[in-house]
């Protein structure tokens, strides 16, 4: 059946939900484009015939056109949904993606991610009076300025804003300003203790 390759792309995205990103499937995309090209060529030829008065070609032209539309929809949906996922990752992982995810991006997607990063950063800098506002901070209304945190893995020496350094060793607890360690909690280095 026509447009089956294109559906594989969609199925692939559907299978890998929740923060996974399958490798950019250039191979299938090329095959889909080849199929579209063939369909288009055949339609061009038949439209030529039809214009000369051969009405019996109309059904095939119609069918091929529907398949072209479908292929186009699948390809665009594939690209769009991947971008949406990459954007969501910026907010979950922070400005640097883990290496194995980065490896699954294609070149234009990497560029897009870098530009998105830059745009977001300059937008956040432009907010408020005093040099910007970090929107990724305080996703939940904070109760205290300082929180008790426990280290989940060895992270090494880490500098708190005022210049103090703490050694984040596995299973040690610390009392730190939330604003400073928020992103480490989000990234799973620290865990907030109630």
């Amino acid at each position: 059946m026509l447009s089956e390759k294109a559906l594989e792309l969609i199925k692939e995205l559907d299978r890998s939900k929740d923060g996974k990103l399958p490798a950019f499937n250039e191979d299938i995309i090329r095959k889909v484009l080849e199929e579209m090209n063939t369909l288009f060529q055949q339609n061009q030829r038949d439209v030529g015939e039809a214009a000369a008065g051969e009405i019996r070609y109309f059904p095939s032209i119609h069918l091929r056109h529907a398949a072209l539309d479908r292929n186009k929809r699948c390809l665009l949906a594939y690209l769009y949904n991947r971008l949406e996922r990459i954007r969501a990752m910026r907010w979950e992982f922070g400005s640097i993606l883990p290496a194995d995810i980065r490896a699954n991006l294609c070149e234009p997607e990497t560029q897009w991610f870098n530009r998105y990063n830059k745009n977001l950063a300059s937008y956040m800098r432009s907010l408020g009076e005093a040099g910007g506002l970090d929107l990724t901070q305080d996703t939940k209304p904070p109760k205290n300025l300082y929180v008790e945190v426990r280290c989940l893995r060895d992270y090494g020496e880490w500098e708190v804003e005022e210049g103090d350094t703490v050694v984040l060793q596995k299973d040690t607890t610390h009392y730190l300003p939330l604003a400073a360690c928020h992103h480490l909690i989000r990234q799973g280095v620290l865990e907030q203790v109630e």
Binding site: D18, G19, K20, A88, M89, W91, E92, F93, P98, D100, I101, T139, K140, P141, P142, K143, V147, L178, H182, I185, R186, Q187, G188, E191, Q192, E194
Partner: peptide, 19 residues
């Protein structure tokens, strides 16, 4: 009264599990 506690983001948890 635990809604304010900051937790590891969902995608990171999933990602670590896989690793």
């Amino acid at each position: 009264r635990r809604a304010h506690i900051v937790t590891t983001s969902y995608m990171v948890t999933q990602h670590n599990k896989r690793k």
